[in-house]
Structure formats: C-alpha cells, structure tokens
Nucleic acid binder design. Structure first.
Length: 467
RNA sequence: GGCCCGUUCGUCUAUCGGUUAGGACACCUGGUUUUCAACCAGGUAAGAGGGGUUCGACUCCCCUACGGGCUGCCA
C-alpha cells in the first residue's frame, strides 16, 4: 500500500545555499534515504531576473559538501515552462481557470483605492472571472485560477497539524502570466506532481501557499502530497537569520572548518528530536528521522553546540577520512595546502589531537608541533621553561634518546629515569621538553609528540633549543 | 491592518492530564592529569502573563503579550 517516498529540495538560484535551505534539504534527504525513497533536486529558476547559473553551481556545491546526494538529474523549472503552460490551458479547458484581462495597472489601482478607503485588506476579484467569452477583448491576458470563494481549505500538515484557511482570504491567483510564463504557484505544483513527489517538506513560509497550491491539485484531479512545513532557523537573538548574524551560507561553514558530518548532526537536531539522541551518524539519523519529531517553533542557531557536536564527529572520524576532509577545508578556506612532510606527520599524529579539537582550524592549531619545521619558534611563556638548568637536563637526554626504543614505553622509561636522577618531578622535565619540541606551553603529551615527529627530529629540536 | 503559525532551563529539546519537569550545549565547583584540551563526578537554571475546563494541568480551551510567516503577473 505504501508507495515509495519521493522528496525534493527546490531552491531558487538567487544566491549561495542558505543554512536554512541546507537544513530543509537535509530533512528531505534523511526522510527519503531512511525509507528507501528518492531525494530529487529541482532548481526553481523561473524568475529570469534573479536566477543565475553561478547561484545554481553554488547550491550544488553546498549540497555536495554537506554530503546530500540527490537522485537523477537536476531539474530546471524554467525548462519545463511549456508543460506549465499546457497545464494552465488544461485548467482553462476544465473551467477551473479563466482568462483575466485586467492589467497590472488596474490591479494596482484597485489596491490603492481599497487602501484609501481604509480597507484592512483587499482580495482582488477579477471582473473577468465569470465574463462571457464573447466580451473578451483582443488583448494580452493572464490565466487565473478560479478559486472557491466560500468555505475553507484544510491543509493536513505533518508538522503543523490541521490548518484551515478561509477561502475568502485567498484571491484567484495567476497561474500563467500575460507573457505566457508560469508563476511559481503553478510551476511548483506541476513539477511536484510530474516528478512524483509524495512528501513536500519545506519551510513554513510556504504554509499559506499550500492552501492555494492544494487548490491546483484539486483542480487537476491530482493526488495531494503529504505536507510538512518546518519552522525556519533563527539567529542567536531569535530574529530571522540574516547577514548581520554572521554566516548564513553553508560554504561559509565549510570555510570556518566545521566538518560536514558534524553540521549534518547539528542541523538534524536543530528543531528535531528523538528522545535523548544527541550525537549520531547519518546512517543512524536516517533510521530515526521522522516528521513527527519536528518541532513547531523556530530554532535558534547556537554556535557553541555546533562546535561541541563537530568536536564529537572529528574525534569519531577515521584518520584517513579526516585528513582528506581537512585538506578540503584548507582549499575552501583559501589556506596553503599541506606539504608532503606535513601531510605525513599529520597522518601519524592525528590520533593524539583529533579528540581535542572542535573545528579544523583548532585541529591544525593543536597539531602545530607536527606542522612546524625547524628551527621551532619558541614563544615567551615557553622560553621561561628553558633555563640553563633545564637545558642541561635536556642535553643529558639526547644520548639516551639516540639509543632508546622509540615506543611510548621506551620513552617513558628514559624520561622518568631522567627526572628521578635529577630529583625533579616529571612535570618539571616535561615543561622544557615541550618548549623545545613545540615552542609552546600547551601541547599534546610529550611522548606523543616525540613518537609523531620521530627520533631524528626530536633530537634535532632538542639541540636547536641549546640542549 | 487581515489571515496563519509559534511560546518548557541562556540555547536545542523530552514530556503527549497525575514526574522531585528528564537529557544535551553553555556556565560554575570538584576530581584526574606532564601543560592545554579531553575525560569523570556534582551544581545553578524552565513551563510568557491572565482566565477557564478538570479531583488534578506544561499538556485541553479562550484572551493578552511577544516572535515569525503570508497577504505580488517574486520564489
């Protein structure tokens, strides 16, 4: 009985992929993928003034980075304009739409007059709705849907519940403009129907539109899809997310160094919950995701939680995959690529830094000891740990290091012995070592650093430090 | 203005008429520790306001306040 689920993401190519759009796409993707369905992508480019191929490319790139793969070819709504016009004319033939010869000027005048009269609102009622075709002038016309003027339209929404809209508040929307091009209201319905979309999951800014779109489904005798209008994302201050909140485009998040898996996890949990589940993989999310768990109130973006979530994912990711994504970050952020040596050291050293970082810049910062090359720059705080006494102790270390077995156990033995012989705690020895090895006071464990950079580099850095 | 939607710790949320209102992030305290993180233990912190309905409301209804959306020959 259950037909396969088909969802879609249908952005307008007027800019980069908005973080809110990314989440909408994510919800559609999770819903379809978790049910063995299809997730389609359609670019709503009927507005020729504002649509650009660059924006389309940016959206595709953003989705790809987020790891949201779509099925089949990307559909261009503009390419389907003939089909839209065909449906408009079919509505005409069915009597569910009519030719309207009112000009934009006349309509504007009607609204101005209504406003002047103090009317709180005015639904434009075309005089051509029931006009006799014999009276039609030889002039351009728009095709308007003949919407019911009484009664109400009921939207059964999986997120919002049952929403009823009074038909009298809805005008006879134009489905085909006087220049023959389709409007969004018509195109979206025709495309969703033709593409076999079963679940329309989109922002709740379309909730009111759903009523009018549902009328088109009814007029054409088509099956109405399952509606799910999700609340928009707001900025930390609760206001609609905008430029002044900082990053609004997903590519900005990539450039800031958030891992895609972490973004997916965070965005999934933003406005959706499944018991106490917080950290999960996309495979797990697909199993859990449902429309029922989507909240009705707009959620605010919280960068602290985003970071925390990303931290878990960086720690969870396999070293090889992490290194690959890190290089993608470097590219996206316009930072210099890794040298062969850095790449090699990072590959070996990721294990001791990946559970300490929340973002890629932080990961790189923690791995500084592996990235840097000699002579190691020593900062002021670290330099204080390199007095003559400690330098002497370090110096006594080098011959032993030369012959040490280069394992954590071997190094532990040597360093602990050295500390004991000098009558100092291990901490007193670790501080100058850290300074010589990394030039800093905050680093991973000295053993890990030595293991990662190797014997020769370790000894060389100790000698550089004057040991 | 009209219509539609929303409102639980600072934030994301659980609860689906009866709970000491739970979890996570953040924050604070303590522990662990070679530094920094991480980690472990504990703590502070919530039902917008007002009316109902009910033996009993965070849960249901109404009003108000606040927030958001729609109200185009834009999408």
């Amino acid at each position: 009985m259950s037909s396969p689920v088909v969802t879609r993401f249908a952005p307008s190519p007027t800019g980069f992929l908005h973080i809110g759009g990314g989440r909408t796409a994510l919800f559609n993707w999770l819903y379809a993928r978790g049910r063995g369905g299809k997730f389609l992508l359609r670019i709503e480019d009927t507005d020729r003034e504002r649509s650009t191929p660059e924006a389309t490319a940016a959206i595709l790139k953003g989705l790809t980075w987020l790891g949201l793969d779509w099925d089949g070819e990307v559909v261009s709504q503009f390419d389907r304009k003939d089909r839209h016009a065909e449906v408009a004319h079919e509505m005409l033939a069915r009597g569910t739409a009519y030719k309207c010869f009112s000009t934009p000027e006349e309509i504007a005048a009607f609204r101005a007059e209504a406003e002047a009269k103090g009317a709180s609102y005015a639904v434009f009622q075309s005089p051509w709705r029931d006009a006799d075709p014999a009276t039609y002038p030889d002039a351009p016309f728009a095709i308007r849907m003949k919407a019911p003027r009484t009664g109400e339209t009921e939207i059964r929404d999986e997120v919002q519940g049952i929403v009823t809209i009074k038909n009298e508040t809805l005008d006879d929307m134009i489905v085909l403009r006087s220049d023959g091009t389709p409007t969004y209201m018509l195109a979206v319905v025709v495309d969703d129907h033709d593409m076999g979309v079963t679940h329309v999951i989109r922002g709740d800014d379309h909730l009111n539109n759903a009523a009018r779109q549902q009328m088109v489904y009814t007029a054409m005798g088509w099956t109405v899809p399952v509606w799910a209008h999700i609340p928009l994302i707001h900025g930390p201050d609760g206001k609609k997310l905008s430029k002044r909140h900082g990053a609004t485009g997903v590519e900005e998040y990539q450039a800031m160094g958030y891992p895609a898996a972490g973004m997916r996890n965070y965005l999934t949990r933003l406005g959706w919950a499944h018991g106490d589940a917080e950290i999960f993989t996309s495979a797990e999310a697909m199993q859990m995701f449902d429309l029922k768990g989507i909240g009705r109130a707009p959620a605010r973006l919280d960068f602290k939680k985003l970071e925390n979530t990303c931290g878990h994912h960086i720690a969870m990711t396999e070293d090889a995959a992490l290194l690959q994504e890190l290089e993608g970050f470097l590219l996206a952020a316009g930072k210099p690529a890794l040298t062969a040596l850095q790449r090699d050291r990072l590959a070996r050293g990721l294990y001791c830094v990946k559970d300490r970082a929340k973002t890629f810049p932080e990961l790189l910062e923690k791995a500084q000891f592996a990235m840097t090359s000699r002579p190691v720059a020593i900062d002021e705080a670290a330099a204080k740990n390199l007095d003559t006494v400690s330098r002497g102790i370090l110096k006594s270390l080098t011959p032993r290091l030369q012959n040490a077995s280069w394992t954590k156990e071997g190094l532990e033995t040597i360093l602990n012995d050295a500390a004991a012989e000098n009558g100092i705690g291990f901490g007193k020895l670790a501080a100058p070592l850290r300074a010589a090895l990394a030039g800093r006071t905050a680093t991973p464990s000295v053993f890990d650093m030595m293991l990662v950079i190797g014997r020769d580099e370790t000894i060389a850095r100790l000698e550089d430090a004057g040991a």
